[in-house]
Design a protein around this nucleic acid. Sequence first.
DNA 1: ATATTATATAAGCAAATAGTTATATATCAG
DNA 2: CTGATATATAACTATTTGCTTATATAATAT
Lengths: 98, 98
Amino acid sequence: MKNLELMAKQLKAVSDPNRLKLLACLKKGEVCACDFVDVLNISQPAVSQQLKKLKEAEIIVERPAGTWKHYRLNEVQQPYIQTIIDHLDEISFIRCDC
Amino acid sequence: MKNLELMAKQLKAVSDPNRLKLLACLKKGEVCACDFVDVLNISQPAVSQQLKKLKEAEIIVERPAGTWKHYRLNEVQQPYIQTIIDHLDEISFIRCDC
DNA sequence: ATATTATATAAGCAAATAGTTATATATCAG
DNA sequence: CTGATATATAACTATTTGCTTATATAATAT
């Protein structure tokens, strides 16, 4: 994939309010997938699909933990993605007990 | 419009290879709209529509000059947009005589 | 093995996107 | 005014997006 198309793909991954909220939740560290359903107020499958897009763009990484999946920001980001993350306000939310 | 939705709107405006190319062409300064048709290899109306999206996101500004329209990057950009522009490689192209 | 729970996938749908062609508008030259 | 040229708008189309509901998969507890 050409440089410019990779860039477009990554930017597309972050150009949605719900996916930006996911990133905002992840600023403080790892989050269990189940927590996002209440934050975004969309169905569990919808959350799963949005997380998948961010994962495919290599913006977040996944860590399976038993029945759960924990997500965190990729430690290495393209600078133009990092700047976006830096300018997001953190979102606080109620965590599940997992 | 909420902060996060404005951010999503602006990121959506730059999350397309053709619109990134437009921005890359504009890095060196003002460009006549007609020049973009050859760079993108799409129709004139398509160019007009893409420029409109960037303009509506306030990423570029327009300067009418007779029959022509000249475009340039907005001098004031959100930091997360500026970083994207900074990481684009300039594109050189043949300029019309206008 | 069975039931429970977390997540993923599939199928379907409405809306948005990115192009096309045809036509309209606007400026300029003669 | 007439014709030429630059840009914009309209109408159309195929594809993509972002959700939904229903179902499948996977891990855990009993």
